[in-house]
Write a protein that binds this DNA or RNA. Sequence first.
DNA 1: AGAGATACCTGGGAGC
DNA 2: TGCTCCCAGGTATCTC
Length: 274
Amino acid sequence: MPELPEVETIKKAVDLAVCGETITKIEVFSPKMRTSLAEFNSPSLVGLTITKVTRRGRYLLLTLSDNRVILMHFGMSGVLRLEPNSVPKRKHEHIFFHLSNNQLLRFECTRRFSMCELCENLDSNGIPLKLSLLGPEPLSEDFTPEYLFNASRKRHSSVKNFIMDNANVVGVGNIYATEALFFSNISPLRKADSLTKKEAENLVLQIKKVLQKAIEAGGTTISDYRHVDGSEGKFVQNLKMYGRSGKECLTCGNTILQAKIGGRTSCYCPKCQK
DNA sequence: AGAGATACCTGGGAGC
DNA sequence: TGCTCCCAGGTATCTC
């Protein structure tokens, strides 16, 4: 499931391969994923060049030469591949972008939670207006202990839901929220506004650290996520808490517990995380 | 305004 | 073996 490190990994590879290339043909195989793909049947896209590839949160943005943006989100099973046309189409591949260098950008999504749409309304930085409500990038200088502490005041939801909310900070999904809270010794069940300044500082540090490490490892492959060349992310070997319910805590040996927080499974060590 | 619940979707695994 | 049920997850949308 692509979180920020996975999308950043995809972004780097796609940037190298498609920047400056022209779209020569688009093939739409399914009418929709989360949104309709019908607009990609428009001939107005053919002949446009991809001028820039950027990432905002878990969104990938392909800026076109007419200043429109192809906005992609990978949901939990979305995979973007760069493969030649000779590779047979897979069952859940929904849209192909043929490029002038004879490469093929193929979007696959088994569970159809992914999104691919064309955006015309952009801000001054070329970011679609629909992304304007997103919080700061966790690896940017805007994501500081002061910011997290202040933003969490009077917030009564759990700290885990709080850091997974894209309005507060983008790109932190279940895997990295679980890991960062473990390394911060903070229980995911705590209310966001119960964090002390010291805890907020540690949590910000751990979120940055775990995301940075995951990017260096090429992301985390749990089930569906793949690199654009089809290989798997290696960060799964580093997971200390996510998916380890019932097993021993690697720090204290206590049994790891599981709870439903905001409808999502959450693992935590009741001894290490207070 | 904030918080919680739910729909969307498919494959895999558990249980019978 | 084959069936049914549940679960995973990010985002949008709904209700309270």
